[in-house]
């Protein structure tokens, strides 16, 4: 539900989201030198492909966003990665929209980058169980952040959206649970198999 379609938000919110996303993109692209283009593109491809995994949570099911895991592994390059994935989803599948690309990119990428980078140092240093907990907490916080930003975009667009935005916020709870657990286990796996991913020197794009 993080993909707001065209025709719902007000022009001011669309413009604001566009400017904020452009800021994040500009900061990321400055660091995206030639050595990192292949890495960013391939990880963007992975996260685009991973969004196709459907995880059952109780009676509902969720598609993964994995924003915090992206923030942990590729840092600020999450901004271009999310934008590219959203363009492909909008064009190939009709999820989201064109005018909302900025808002949607910002809503998904910012919490992921923020909580991913916050947890990065600790996840790199800590032993597996603590690192898994930290990554899971970062993932839950990132989903909550995305839910909050989606609700904010709706509420700022029109006062009529206040009630629906609250209900929409509740629908993020299953996603929060699934993302926290899956990100935690994924980090546990990576700590065993390829721990250097989280070392500071491997951080592809410093904040």
């Amino acid at each position: 539900m993080a993909h707001i379609p065209d025709g719902v938000l007000s022009p001011a919110v669309l413009a604001g989201g566009g400017i904020l996303a452009a800021g994040g993109l500009a900061a990321a692209l400055r660091h995206l030198d030639e050595a990192r283009i292949a890495r960013t593109a391939i990880l963007a491809a992975v996260f685009f492909a991973a969004s196709l995994i459907v995880v059952p949570v109780g009676p509902s099911s969720v598609h993964l966003l994995l924003g915090a895991l992206m923030g942990l592994v590729i840092g600020t390059a999450t901004f271009p990665a999310v934008l590219i994935a959203l363009v492909l989803q909008a064009v190939l599948f009709g999820f989201g929209g064109l005018t909302t690309l900025g808002v949607n990119t910002f809503n998904i990428a910012l919490p992921g980058v923020l909580f991913g980078l916050l947890a990065h140092g600790y996840v790199g240093r800590a032993q597996a169980p603590a690192a898994m907990l930290a990554a899971g907490a970062a993932a839950a916080a990132a989903v909550a952040g995305t839910a909050g930003l989606v609700a904010l975009a709706l509420i700022l667009s029109s006062a009529d959206f206040v009630q629906p935005a609250k209900v929409l916020g509740l629908t993020y709870l299953p996603l929060m649970l699934a993302e926290a657990l899956i990100t935690g286990f994924a980090v546990g796996f990576l700590k065993r198999v390829k721990p250097e991913i989280f070392l500071a020197s491997a951080r592809p794009v410093a904040a």
């Binding site: 990880l43 995880v55 699934a178 286990f185 994924a186 991913i197």
Partner: peptide, 18 residues
Amino acid sequence: HTFRTYGNLAGMVLVRSL
């Protein structure tokens, strides 16, 4: 079990992609 399996799947694909 499901969450651990999907976590391992995501981790495995990330390792291969890197």
